Each structure stands twice: as C-alpha cells, then as structure tokens.
Simulated assay, not measured.
Amino acid sequence: MPKVEIFDPALCCPTGVCGPSVDPELTRVATALFILEKKGYDISRFNLASEPAKFAENKKVIQYLNEKGPDSLPLTLVDGEIVQSETYPSTQKLAEWFGIAVEDLEKKKVTNKIDLV
C-alpha cells in the first residue's frame, strides 16, 4: 500500500475548511482524505501553520521549499517521492494511487427520507 503525504500551505485550521467562505477544493480534498483514513489507507496531511516541524523533518520537502518557495504548496509525496506541487491531487489520482474506485472517495448523498408522520 502506498504512503501519501500532502504538505499544505499555511491554513487557518488543519483542513482549511473553516471560515465564512470555504474553498470547494479544500472541501473535496478533506472529504477524500477523511474517507481514505477511515478505510485504513496510509495518508497524512500537514499544515505549514500548525505543523512546521513536519516540513523541516522531511529533507525533500525542505529542499523543495528552499528552491521553489511556499507558493509551491501544496506538495504531494507518494512513497517519499514528490509527485505533485502547487495543486492538490485530483480524486481520480488519489483513487489510482490506492487502487480504488473514484466513487469510493466521493461523499455519498443521503437518499433515504424519514416520514415522521
């Protein structure tokens, strides 16, 4: 099973899904990562604002940031190798890396209605 790590820019909270106007891209990523974590896949996400030590501990990440700067975040590593920067991985890419269906990473809409009468 692959190990995926996402290094976020400085966000207001761990997921970036907070405040009066939420970025739909952050919501998509947070949902997909939550589902993957819940299913036991090895995926981690680190926020520059709250977890700077995680950035400093990773030689590839710190070297990349020294060369490209913080505007290159988010940065995604798969099994320790940088595979993407400046944007979050698509749901398709996450599904591909973990060998699962894209539908398994999408929030399911509740279709059951409860009649309270």
Rank of each mutant, 00 (worst) to 15 (best):
residue 26 L to V: 09
residue 26 L to C: 03
residue 26 L to A: 03
residue 27 T to M: 04
residue 27 T to G: 10
residue 28 R to A: 11
residue 28 R to M: 12
residue 29 V to D: 00
residue 31 T to P: 07
residue 31 T to W: 06
residue 33 L to H: 11
residue 33 L to Q: 02
residue 34 F to R: 13
residue 34 F to Q: 12
residue 34 F to C: 05
residue 34 F to G: 12
residue 36 L to H: 02
residue 36 L to T: 06
residue 36 L to D: 07
residue 37 E to V: 07
residue 37 E to S: 12
residue 38 K to S: 14
residue 39 K to H: 15
residue 39 K to A: 14
residue 40 G to S: 09
residue 40 G to P: 01
residue 41 Y to W: 08
residue 41 Y to M: 13
residue 41 Y to G: 01
residue 42 D to A: 15
residue 43 I to T: 03
residue 43 I to G: 02
residue 44 S to M: 04
residue 45 R to F: 05
residue 46 F to Q: 02
residue 47 N to T: 07
residue 47 N to M: 14
residue 48 L to W: 13
residue 50 S to C: 10
residue 51 E to N: 12
residue 51 E to C: 07
residue 52 P to M: 07
residue 52 P to D: 07
residue 54 K to W: 06
residue 54 K to F: 07
residue 54 K to D: 09
residue 55 F to I: 03
residue 56 A to V: 13
residue 58 N to R: 12
residue 58 N to G: 12
residue 58 N to A: 10
residue 58 N to Y: 00
residue 59 K to C: 08
residue 59 K to P: 03
residue 60 K to P: 06
residue 61 V to A: 01
residue 61 V to F: 00
residue 61 V to Y: 00
residue 64 Y to D: 06
residue 64 Y to L: 11
residue 64 Y to W: 10
residue 65 L to M: 07
residue 65 L to T: 02
residue 65 L to P: 08
residue 66 N to R: 15
residue 67 E to G: 05
residue 68 K to F: 13
residue 69 G to Q: 11
residue 69 G to M: 03
residue 69 G to L: 00
residue 70 P to Q: 13
residue 70 P to W: 15
residue 70 P to H: 13
residue 71 D to G: 08
residue 71 D to N: 08
residue 72 S to K: 03
residue 72 S to F: 01
residue 72 S to L: 01
residue 72 S to P: 08
residue 73 L to H: 00
residue 74 P to K: 00
residue 74 P to W: 00
residue 76 T to H: 06
residue 76 T to K: 02
residue 78 V to P: 04
residue 81 E to A: 12
residue 81 E to F: 07
residue 82 I to C: 00
residue 82 I to E: 06
residue 82 I to K: 01
residue 83 V to E: 09
residue 83 V to G: 10
residue 84 Q to V: 00
residue 85 S to Y: 13
residue 88 Y to C: 01
residue 88 Y to R: 02
residue 88 Y to P: 00
residue 89 P to E: 09
residue 92 Q to S: 15
residue 94 L to F: 11
residue 95 A to T: 10
residue 95 A to H: 07
residue 96 E to H: 09
residue 97 W to Q: 02
residue 97 W to A: 02
residue 99 G to Q: 11
residue 100 I to D: 05
residue 100 I to H: 05
residue 101 A to M: 14
residue 102 V to S: 06
residue 102 V to H: 01
